[in-house]
């Protein structure tokens, strides 16, 4: 892990949806730092709000959403990152002349987000590649277009396209096919190549492995890891704990709109600090294969205090107060009665 400043610093992110009859607490007071070269996974049960996090960072929330907090993206970082993408000079934003001022993804005007941030600085590896590819263009045209739009010359782009294809595990010959002629796995790899083409310093992967078989899951994950090792920062959002364990540096466990624990991967899987993390891990077929008891609360009707208390065997009256989790460092647990490791890991350097 690096000791550099975070590339993306999310502080106090809160997202609410107004429905006619209720308010959805989708994300609450979320703190998360991602440094260059770091792969952070966010895991949790379905409906915990983890996808909303990705949508919020991309500015893709519906209009009835209220977003507060900050998500500062450093814009000088990519320039200092060299050698990861061959012979290219400078990042998109550096070329754009934005200098070193960080961009707040949550306050950024939609036009700037669309033109200067999404795709260029923040790449998205989509969940369903088949529907995210333009059906009337071949993979090669999609890829070359993207490369040209991001600073490759006309002569250089096709070569780069081939290189990128090999990089993601696609036969360059398959680039001449149309999206509907590709299998699900090939389409996923093409979509990944498209996300990687602008060489974004930050990659957001929202459930990138859903519906893929094991070898492809591993391949996609390893690809993200390699990107990370080359200096990019990756935020992986997944319900698949095994995926997080395979590639993540740190894992944030999300429950009922909040991050309840953020710890180095190894530490989390060996000795989870939050009772919920422990219960979730116990559900894995490799372990007890025992579901977390009870049901997750509705995001429209969260209890006061710790939202896990009702399902937790360590709960006491103290749990009626929301446990503090204001720190932004990996290794912290939002629990009044954490399991053994918590004290141990409170010291983990960021």
């Amino acid at each position: 892990m690096t000791t550099t400043d975070p590339l993306l610093a999310v502080a106090g992110l809160t997202v609410r949806f107004r429905l006619p009859d209720a308010v959805v607490h989708a994300v609450t007071d979320l703190h998360l730092d991602i440094r260059p070269g770091e792969l952070v996974a966010v895991v949790g049960e379905s409906g915990c709000g983890k996808s909303v996090l990705a949508h919020a960072l991309l500015g893709l929330l519906p209009r009835n959403a209220t977003v507060t907090g900050r998500a500062l993206l450093r814009t000088d970082s990519a320039g200092s990152r060299s050698g990861s993408a061959g012979s290219r000079g400078g990042s998109a934003l550096a070329r754009g002349g934005d200098g070193a001022a960080p961009v707040d993804l949550l306050a950024c005007p939609p036009r700037q987000l669309a033109r200067q941030v999404r795709g260029r600085v923040v790449g998205l590896v989509p969940q369903s590649p088949a529907t995210s590819l333009t059906p009337v263009r071949t993979g090669r045209r999609l890829l070359v277009e993207t490369l040209r739009a991001h600073g490759h010359t006309g002569a250089d782009a096709p070569v780069a396209a081939d290189r990128l294809a090999v990089d993601v595990g696609l036969d360059p010959a398959d680039l001449d096919r149309y999206p509907h002629e590709l299998s699900g796995g090939m389409a996923q790899r093409l979509a990944t190549a498209l996300a990687l083409a602008p060489d974004p310093p930050l990659l957001l992967a929202d459930e990138p492995t859903t519906g893929l078989d094991r070898p492809l899951v591993d391949h996609t994950l390893d690809l993200l890891r390699r990107r990370c090792d080359a200096g990019a920062a990756v935020l992986l959002i997944t319900h698949d704990l095994a995926a997080a364990q395979r590639v993540a540096d740190t894992v944030a466990v999300m429950y009922a709109s909040r991050i309840v624990e953020h710890a180095p991967t190894e530490a989390l899987f060996e000795a989870p600090g939050h009772p919920y993390s422990a219960a979730l891990l116990d559900a894995l077929p490799q372990r007890a294969f025992r579901p977390v008891p009870g049901h997750p609360p509705m995001l429209t009707d969260l209890p006061a205090g710790c939202a896990f208390a009702a399902r937790c065997d360590r709960a006491t009256p103290a749990c009626r107060v929301q446990p503090a989790f204001t720190g932004i460092r990996a290794g912290q647990v939002a629990c009044h009665h954490p399991l053994e490791r918590a004290e141990l890991c409170a010291e983990v350097p960021a």
């Binding site: 949806f17 989708a26 379905s46 409906g47 915990c48 996808s51």
Partner: peptide, 11 residues
């Protein structure tokens, strides 16, 4: 649930 919320919102 997220997807569910988003769809509900769209209506």
């Amino acid at each position: 649930m997220t997807a569910a919320v988003l769809t509900r919102v769209r209506r």
